[in-house]
Design a protein around this nucleic acid. Sequence first.
DNA 1: TATTGTTATACTCTATAACTATA
DNA 2: TATAGTTATAGAGTATAACAATA
Lengths: 165, 165
Amino acid sequence: MATTAAPDTRKTPAEPSDTLLRQFVGYNMKRAFMLIQDDITETLAPLGLRIGTFSALAVVVGSPGISQTQLSQVLNIKRSGVVVVVDELERAGVLERTPVYSDRRAYALQVTPAGKRLWRRAERAMQAHEAALFADLDAKDLRIFQDLLSRVARSAARHRRGSAN
Amino acid sequence: MATTAAPDTRKTPAEPSDTLLRQFVGYNMKRAFMLIQDDITETLAPLGLRIGTFSALAVVVGSPGISQTQLSQVLNIKRSGVVVVVDELERAGVLERTPVYSDRRAYALQVTPAGKRLWRRAERAMQAHEAALFADLDAKDLRIFQDLLSRVARSAARHRRGSAN
DNA sequence: TATTGTTATACTCTATAACTATA
DNA sequence: TATAGTTATAGAGTATAACAATA
């Protein structure tokens, strides 16, 4: 039945790989992002921040007085998710829910002085991290990449708006 | 104390936005990917596939006889996660666990004829989907984008290997 | 009636750890 | 002892739905 000479060396055709998936832009985007996500998490952890809280802090720094509903829209998450993030940042003394006198249902989110200091540290840490992470790409390539990313995002958003949902 | 004229119009400085976050490549990658992820899910759903099962199917099509451990390495997930995905694909009659006579612990994964037909349909659906999704970008831009994505992934992987983990 | 923030709950994805059967 | 596959369980992250206070 079995040949006695020449053992079977093709257990799997050479190296198993994701060749068929690499044709897809979506797969390559996911793969690249997953690779840097863990790095980002590790960069933020010493500052007591997660990706979600870092993002929320950035938006409140850039748009002081923003409401939680507005924050949910900017970050593309649900209002119920914002509550968790704001709770965490408020507990850490990073931001505050201040009353809105014209609408007593809503809160105006404000960054505390400690929050501003934390943001400056976090921003610098992330900038340093990305500089190291993308050391292989020169400034011009990075600009092109950023531009293509925003064009891809715009194209996808348009496509999404165009379809039925 | 308070001026009696001119009501307070700056509830929030104009439009709240994520300006401070856009400086980061990681944020733009996440944002762009999130936008297309839902689209991909909707493209695969009619075929009975999720992103995870689609990816696994693609790898087994491209590397027939691959083991579950190898598959976990290619897809960058844990072996326990592979079990779930392979269970689902096997239940759907898309692939099979065939015995490996040289190692009775392991399975060689094989795509069934139905699985091959499903893959061809899924591949075409995804190609059509991406063509529509990235309609705003010409072929040259897309090639540049793909190239930059793989360079970013390589750079990130190198950075990751270099640091202590 | 509609909206803001909140809570409880559930779902998806993935990770960890302990187990079995083989090696 | 180590490895392949499996199972149970737990943890993020996010979504849905119902609720109170207010508009």
